[in-house]
Write a protein that binds this DNA or RNA. Structure first.
Lengths: 210, 210
DNA sequence: CCTAAACACTGACCGCGGGTCATTGACTTG
DNA sequence: CAAGTCAATGACCCGCGGTCAGTGTTTAGG
């Protein structure tokens, strides 16, 4: 990497971190691109050298939050319920550590129609949610879940839970505690949901609901 | 009501309905206030005679969607599980009938911090969700649920479920079927969640999870 | 070591769109 | 019929996202 490229990397990074902290402080809509560039001593145009749109900052956050979660969850030892609980916990920790304003903007982006610009982490990507899908598929492959497990349905259901939590967290101005919530969900609901699909003995008897 | 007031009512209504259909067609961000007013043959300023901000259109939708849901759910005969399932179904029907773009914008608004402008149906209002709270309190009063029922916790939990569904519905571009989802939730999860709080005999044995 | 190409960076500029407000003129009231 | 009310107007303001031709420094190659 040449000296020039190094400086460029640094500039990009500076814009990104400055943007995050400003957005977190004042809210996405209340921070202009010029606020960001002024705060790190570069010209407005420089922002657009590194990011196509103002919103791309959020996709970058997203990548940071989740880059490790699915890897760690895969490596996590334990039952499938424990693994999923771990994943959920990691997911919500990623989001909450990012900050509520960034989370808000992510939700705003993610609900946009799929053909909108910036599809990578908004729209389809987040909805399909490769992390979780791969993770469940692996569980089937590893014999933790039955071959007949409707992975797609479960992914939808779990995404619905996660997005519900995120939305409530945003609405409550972070008074809602996702950690507690995940714990509750993992203990009371997750076993019931998974019971019919867990590959062998344990926790099946739980599932007799009408 | 004078002739003048009648005309004003009509103007307001025309702006509202035109706005809804334009937003639904093109997306909230892609419809300007001038698009709306031009489409119903009035001046731009007229919009602001009736609505403080562009976003207020959404709050109005919101009111329309839910005005009947809680009343109908209260009157609905049956077990508490059935009543709640009915409410959930009504809620999601209200949202989906409104249309996906309006729903998207509602979510965007609703996750804003509470002190933002237009608090009525955004922010706190939606989070506290009087409908659901009142409804559960009534159930306690009517003896359908135990006195010790943690109403607030349950409301949070249910809101989380509802917002999760809404978000998934928006993300999936309406391919996700909320009706089916509510049915599934009502049948498999709701009884387990409510079991410890249902006032007497039925469905308590279900709740033995670790 | 020099020159030409590459390229990070600049900031004036554009256009759009949300929101305002002094003004108008039709209707209402007494 | 006169005075007051008020729905409606549309020119105007301004902030902001995004663009692009230009600049000066670095890099690569001869």
């Amino acid at each position: 990497m040449t000296k020039r490229q190094e400086i460029a990397q640094e500039t990009r990074r500076k814009i990104y971190t400055t943007a995050c902290s400003l957005i977190e402080e004042k809210g996405f809509a209340n921070v202009s691109v010029e606020d960001i560039t002024r705060a790190c001593g570069v010209a407005k145009g420089t922002f657009y050298v590194y990011f196509k749109r103002k919103e791309e900052i959020i996709f970058e956050c997203c990548k940071e939050w989740f880059s490790d979660v699915d890897r760690k969850a895969r490596e996590h030892k334990g039952t499938i319920v424990e693994k999923l609980a771990f994943y959920f916990k990691g997911f919500m920790e990623g989001v909450t550590c990012g900050g509520v304003e960034l989370c808000r903007q992510w939700v705003r982006e993610v609900i946009n129609p799929a053909d909108s610009p910036g599809e990578m982490c908004g729209g389809k990507y987040a909805y399909d949610h490769r992390h979780l899908t791969d993770f469940l598929n692996d569980a089937v492959k590893d014999g933790l879940l039955k071959k007949s497990t409707p992975v797609e349905v479960l992914v939808h259901l779990f995404m619905s839970e996660l997005y519900g939590m995120m939305t409530c967290w945003c609405m409550s101005d972070t008074k809602f505690d996702p950690g507690k919530w995940v714990g509750r969900f993992a203990k009371l609901q997750l076993p019931n949901i998974l019971a019919p699909y867990v590959a062998d003995t344990a926790s099946r008897k739980v599932h007799e609901v009408r």
